[in-house]
Nucleic acid binder design. Sequence first.
DNA 1: GTGAAAGCGCTAACAT
DNA 2: ATGTTAGCGCTTTCAC
Lengths: 357, 357
Amino acid sequence: MSSSGKPPITIYELATHLGVSTATVSSVLANRHVERRIAEKTAKRIREAALELGYVPNMAGRRLRSHKASTRQFDLAIFTSFEAPLPLVGQALHALQRAVDVQTTTHTRYSVAIEMFHAGRLAEKPGLLEADRYHGVMITNTLHEDDAFLAQAKLPYPVVVLGRSIAGYCCVLEAPDLVGRHAVELLLGAGGQHLTVLRGRSLTHTTSNRLAAFKHTARELTGHEPIELVSEGLQPSQGAAAIDAHLAGGGKVDGLFSVTDSLTIGAYQTLKRRGYAVPDDVAVVGVGDNELAEYFDPPLTTVAGANDAMVAEAVPLLFRYLRGEKGIPQEVLTTPPVLVRASTLRRRAGQSDRGEG
Amino acid sequence: MSSSGKPPITIYELATHLGVSTATVSSVLANRHVERRIAEKTAKRIREAALELGYVPNMAGRRLRSHKASTRQFDLAIFTSFEAPLPLVGQALHALQRAVDVQTTTHTRYSVAIEMFHAGRLAEKPGLLEADRYHGVMITNTLHEDDAFLAQAKLPYPVVVLGRSIAGYCCVLEAPDLVGRHAVELLLGAGGQHLTVLRGRSLTHTTSNRLAAFKHTARELTGHEPIELVSEGLQPSQGAAAIDAHLAGGGKVDGLFSVTDSLTIGAYQTLKRRGYAVPDDVAVVGVGDNELAEYFDPPLTTVAGANDAMVAEAVPLLFRYLRGEKGIPQEVLTTPPVLVRASTLRRRAGQSDRGEG
DNA sequence: GTGAAAGCGCTAACAT
DNA sequence: ATGTTAGCGCTTTCAC
């Protein structure tokens, strides 16, 4: 209530309002009024006025004044979309934090934060274009709109972009086309004929490349277009629904690639419920963006998910920026690892005739 | 290199070092030198000196100076341990961000960050005791040592603690004992006799309560002590290893409760590999801290995991603090939801005689 | 028991 | 093409 409508207020205004000095207000607000021997009555008046007028301390002012001059502070952040799954972010955060733990000295302190924006609306994030908050950031989980915004805006501080290529920024991403290609090859190798790709409605740079490469390679190697299933979102239930609708409509599936593992989880559920065995009836390939892929039943073959590799590249790049180095690469490609697990290891030869729903 | 050993340097020092004014330095460093018509040569000298002397801008100074006086900024954070799984944090972050999105006005801006500390070493986190960084924080995933530290330190800004009770703080946590009790009841209901509890080596407030309540209730209802399996860590592989060792040694299991779902994932793997069927040979109960519990095979019955409920309580509490309200509850208990799924729904009657390894 | 004043590091308006 | 200066909001000596 008090802290909303009105414009913000400073201790100076509090002080004049009450007819006391800013020093008095400050000490009371910092709970130092005892050692300053402020009258309890005055302290009470000050606290009440602060509440009533909706006083909110200005942290920049506080920090500027009270920080030891001998401490250099680096404020780092990871920007990620609100809607994205957290694993990549978690890894990035861990890697950054680990790097920072090593670099911390008496004179140099670091803080690492995660900041979230709404997917596709990065441009609306306040303070993004000001250079007064972070010394450096990593950005990930952007959508096309965000990438377009970044390309045109050029943030005024060091940035390393994860998982997509944006002109003017240092970007770390998986080598293009490999993921989609490997997926097709694995599915064909497992005897798949009705190659199917499952993806969410909105695509990122990465997922759209995976999709395109899959379709292109499938066309090239099988001579016909693969089936493309689009789920409403990235929740398992939405993946389950997409497959279910396809099968219910008489569609066939014997080789499935999903560009996001949470969709695979839903697909597994639907397939099992409808009596399809993985991998014998349907071979499945995922991308490894769920850290539990190995524990799926059956364990999921994955063709990407080099998050740790990407992050391992990105963190040193950010530090090179912070150090002011020149000649930092604009694009670093990591090779996505292929992890073959049971979901593409067909036990019996020949392909099944399942799939007529 | 340049930014390490030496004490930090300001634009003032840069300026005197170069024989120019601070304004010149500032404008060059902010890339405003074009509109200020600084000689390219001077700009170059300044940039080089900044690099060489390891200049790092002081963000507090920048913000203080350049922020619009009409903007009130709230800096909020979630503190979590580095080692903890991210789901709870993710939910907390989402809930906070959502609350913040609603509250944002022209005059009031919010920023939400995640900050990590190393489990058990919260006390070492620099700046924790200073009130010059955050207006309010939520703390979660602490260990005993951290709780002890917090209880004795009393942070000088609004704090809401998630998932544990610490004297002197506003805490939101699941109602005690219910989780362990429900787990026992469900396992017994599914025909379990050799009640077993699986937990990681280090316990939090929450997991130790779950464990204690489980053991106590099991004793009460069965007349004997349940089996307690301790895994080295919380990784699925470590859970798998713990169960495997037990079974390899001739131990029996027909009713398993795991105080952390990632351990359940590993347990599922071992049980399947050794030919035990869930739930027919072994009923399993988890706690719902993995958002995919519903997609496990079979879907996992859970007796806790009201993360969203906890967070839903915690966020408004934090805002009440920020508003300066009095009489904020010190302890809010949420009722953990029981979600019965296939992992405790035994299809055939009677209990199996499996379990001799 | 309280006030006055200096100044943290930085930027921007106004001077040349 | 660059220097001077006035603060941003706050805490902390020092003075009374």
